[in-house]
Simulated assay, not measured.
Amino acid sequence: MTRISTAPTGRQFGDGPLSRITSRVYILLVVEALLLLTTLPGLLPLLLLGRDPSNLPLAALLLVPVGPAVSAALYALRHQRPDLTDLRPAALFWRGYRINVAGALRVWVPMVLWLSVLAVNLAYRDAVGLAGWWVVPLVLIAVGVTLCAANALVITALFDFRTRDVLRLAVHFLVRAPGVTVGNALLLGAAAGITAVFSEAVLALVASIAVLALLRVGDPMIHLIRKEFT
């Protein structure tokens, strides 16, 4: 008796390399547009601010919408399948924004406040009587706070933990996953370089790519959390 094969003999729609590339570009463009839309109320005035140290507290306030937007983008990029027949990055973004906005703000706002206090002290160190040798420790603290916040945003976006547990895990994985920490430090350096050489506007225009990079760098941490804590 002749055996009849039921396996597909050809490539399915949306499986080709061009289709996959097209779907990924589409997802990034949609997420980028939504990132700009949700952060525009803060970013637009921020772009008009001069780079005077006296504007640091106001700049910190204007950056508050960035945290929930990044959290929503992380959620959308993590859960969207690169399938041309099932592309819904906008729906995933808004779902991630809705369920993560409170948790993201609880992580993001303290980080922004900490960084603004450190930046003001560094900018006016002579006026506050801060010795020159304090510059290096304060910069290191600022970097540590930012790296911890990056871990916490990823965890908040993808897992349902209490805020204190999110912060514990974020600090824990600074040491537990050194590759993630180094990768995030490189991303932070690249973002700072783009902002210094060009402007915040250029960084905003590649925000979805930066969020995707943050997600890819955090993959080992995500895997360990899923394996050991969920």
Rank of each mutant, 00 (worst) to 15 (best):
R3P: 05
R3I: 09
P8L: 14
T9R: 15
G14Q: 09
L18Q: 03
R20V: 08
I21N: 01
S23Y: 09
V25K: 11
I27S: 06
I27M: 11
L28T: 03
L34A: 14
L35A: 09
T38R: 00
T39I: 08
L40F: 04
L44C: 00
L46S: 09
L47K: 10
L48A: 15
S54Q: 14
P57D: 02
P57Q: 07
P65I: 12
A72T: 01
A73N: 04
L74R: 08
Y75Q: 08
Y75V: 06
H79G: 04
P82H: 04
D83E: 12
D83C: 15
T85S: 09
D86K: 10
L87M: 10
R88P: 04
L92A: 08
L92H: 03
W94Q: 03
W94L: 15
R95D: 01
N100G: 11
V101A: 10
A102R: 14
A104M: 15
L105M: 12
R106M: 14
M111R: 03
V120G: 06
A123E: 13
Y124V: 13
Y124F: 06
A127S: 12
V128R: 04
L130F: 08
W133D: 03
W133C: 01
V135T: 13
P137L: 02
L138I: 11
A142R: 03
C148N: 14
A150M: 14
A150Y: 11
I155Q: 11
I155L: 12
T156W: 15
T156K: 05
D160L: 12
T163W: 11
D165A: 08
L167A: 13
R168G: 14
F173N: 04
V175D: 10
R176E: 15
A177Y: 00
P178H: 10
G179V: 05
G183H: 01
A190C: 03
G193K: 07
G193Q: 06
T195P: 00
V206G: 07
A210H: 01
V211D: 04
L215K: 09
I225H: 06
R226V: 09
F229S: 02
F229C: 00
T230W: 02
T230Q: 09
